[in-house]
Design a protein around this nucleic acid. Structure first.
Lengths: 112, 112
DNA sequence: TCACTACATGTAGCTTTACTACTCATACCG
DNA sequence: CGGTATGAGTAGTAAAGCTACATGTAGTGA
């Protein structure tokens, strides 16, 4: 995976990981890793700042929780986050179909 | 389309636009615009530097041509460029299927 | 003739965003 | 007691597309 491939597509995936209920950062990380067959094995330096960004943007709400001596920051979608997720899904559809069309299948020269 | 969405995916599309024969920058720009139904209407400040980058990387070869008082820089794929295009196609498959899986379809709550 | 648009190429500086490389802390397992 | 998994974070860097410009020719309509 190219170093820049993720740019602009991470937020949507983070929001999607929170869609089915509140999750803490580490769990979101796992969801991305498992849900991509290990392809998105993102460093903590990517995921935590990204979640902070979403918080600042008002798309998620965060809350500290202590459970079994384990300090966790649990994130939850806001209504704005749900709307944004819808938008991101739509944008991804548009974007990916355009790239797929342009990249096209490899047309090998006819070898009749 | 998000400002960063293209990051890391442009090179492949540029190479693909050159696959069927040499093209000059402006023509490549048109191919991207037309082939994406107007979604990738990229500014010249994006396309020309990107082509230079591919040239420096050895993926395309460039040549000036004068035709009807029109000064054009014509780009052509190198063997390395063709290999890279194959790689980019493969990477795009991997990437887009992973994103699609994670973004997922919107599962609305059952409304029985 | 004049203005506007399409064609054609380019650069300098900005911005965004993911990554690298760290720090800190607890729980668990051998 | 040492290593790994869990859990959160920051500072600084690099990549790459975008904005806003400059430059020039050709064609078209008023």
């Amino acid at each position: 995976m190219s170093a820049q491939a993720l740019k602009g597509h991470l937020d949507g995936m983070l929001l999607a990981a929170l869609e089915d209920g509140p999750r803490h950062g580490y769990a979101v990380m796992e969801i991305l890793r498992a849900g991509s067959d290990g392809r998105f094995d993102l460093p903590t330096g990517t995921i935590y700042p990204a979640l902070r960004r979403l918080e600042r943007a008002g798309h998620v709400r965060a809350q500290w929780s202590e459970e079994g001596g384990r300090r966790r920051r649990v994130y939850e979608l806001t209504p704005s986050g749900r709307r944004t997720l819808d938008d991101e899904r739509h944008a991804w559809q548009e974007f990916s179909s355009a790239v797929t069309a342009l990249l096209g299948p490899h047309r090998r020269p006819v070898t009749s």
